[in-house]
């Protein structure tokens, strides 16, 4: 039998106040994130054009975008979506791989005790700086530098060095993609570098010391110690970068000439934006494309995650489980044998 005092103590639950304090976040989350998310799902089931915005069309938008089975308009939608997905993947790979390579290299160098680099903090700050600049300004900066006519800084420099015709950096298919990849890499490698450095510094120094004593060379240290122990951080970087990359909007949207946009650098997010803001509003198609993007992101994210699961750890867990089971069986059977 509990005393009434004990009962009273049990009934005071401080968790309640905690919930109240986190309530504002959830309210905002519901209004600005969750509701739009569901609304997008809803919109993707409705028609396009100003007249048909309120007509329920089921999965028509999805089948239009994915199969392209229908009139010229539907075929155009399908081709557009394929094109923008390709663009997005090319632009993401083109910026993620050099970015990861560069930041990994720099992170290893900056954390290596044997390399005595001077002015580490200075370099770290300078390399992180591009990330502080807004993407809009970065796009404007690159647009100005890489202007495609003979009046642009890079082109006039090249022409002074003896080139005959200006290079089209803005509208040409691969040149424009290259500039965008470069700008993205330049913007984000500092950020990735800082994250990887944090992870490397989290690795116990005794491991590096032991490797040193055992006479491992720096390549061995890198491949046998740094990289395997960096795996969780690399997964994190990869997933965040992939989500960011699939939703890449600002630089591809702004890096264009005047008011004409470039079909070769139009990403999914730009496509969604353009269709949403089109004058006969294509809410259905842009919402359907968003939903497809959502699932693609989810699937790719899961694949990344599964691929990077530590197989040794899983195997070890399995072994332990197995061993426990056997122990139990043994104990049982030994009982029975008594």
């Amino acid at each position: 039998m509990r005393s009434s005092a004990q009962n009273k103590i049990r009934s005071i639950s401080y968790a309640k106040y905690g919930y109240m304090f986190i309530l504002p976040f959830f309210i905002i989350y519901f209004i600005f994130q969750l509701f739009p998310l569901f609304n997008t799902f809803k919109l993707s089931l409705y028609g396009n054009g100003d007249a048909a915005t309120n007509t329920f069309v089921g999965l028509q938008n999805f089948s239009d975008l994915i199969t392209g089975d229908g009139n010229i308009s539907v075929v155009a939608q399908h081709k557009n979506v394929i094109r923008v997905f390709q663009n997005t993947i090319i632009l993401w790979f083109g910026n993620f791989i050099p970015q990861l390579a560069l930041s990994l290299l720099l992170a290893v160098w900056f954390t290596d005790i044997n390399l005595k680099i001077k002015g580490k903090t200075f370099f770290k700050i300078v390399m992180y700086l591009p990330n502080i600049v807004t993407a809009a300004s970065v796009a404007a900066l690159f647009l100005m530098l890489f202007s495609k006519t003979k009046y642009g800084p890079i082109n006039s420099l090249l022409m002074d060095l003896g080139m005959e015709k200006p290079i089209d950096f803005v509208r040409d298919k691969w040149n424009s993609r290259f500039v965008i990849m470069f700008a993205q890499t330049w913007m984000w490698f500092g950020n990735t570098m800082i994250m990887l450095m944090a992870a490397i510094m989290g690795i116990s120094p005794s491991l590096f010391e032991a490797a040193d004593i055992d006479g491992a060379n720096s390549r061995q240290v890198f491949t046998r110690i740094t990289v395997p122990l960096l795996r969780p951080m690399v997964i994190y970087v990869m997933i965040t970068s992939m989500i960011g990359g699939l939703q890449m909007w600002d630089i591809p949207y702004l890096y264009k000439e005047g008011t004409t946009y470039n079909r070769n650098t139009e990403t999914i997010a730009v496509y969604i934006y353009n269709h949403f803001h089109n004058v006969p509003h294509n809410y259905g198609y842009s919402a359907a494309a968003s939903v497809i993007l959502f699932f693609v992101t989810a699937i790719l994210g899961s694949i990344c995650f599964i691929m990077n699961v530590d197989k040794d750890a899983v195997a070890r867990k399995k072994q332990i489980k197995e061993a426990k089971k056997q122990m139990k069986m043994q104990r049982k059977s030994s009982f029975g044998g008594f």
């Binding site: 048909a52 010229i72 308009s73 155009a76 939608q77 081709k79 269709h275 089109n278 006969p280 294509n282």
Partner: peptide, 15 residues
């Protein structure tokens, strides 16, 4: 051009 317009304006009559 025709395909691009078709990709933007769905409500026209596209045969």
């Amino acid at each position: 051009f025709k395909a691009n317009v078709a990709g933007k304006i769905t409500e026209l009559n596209w045969d």
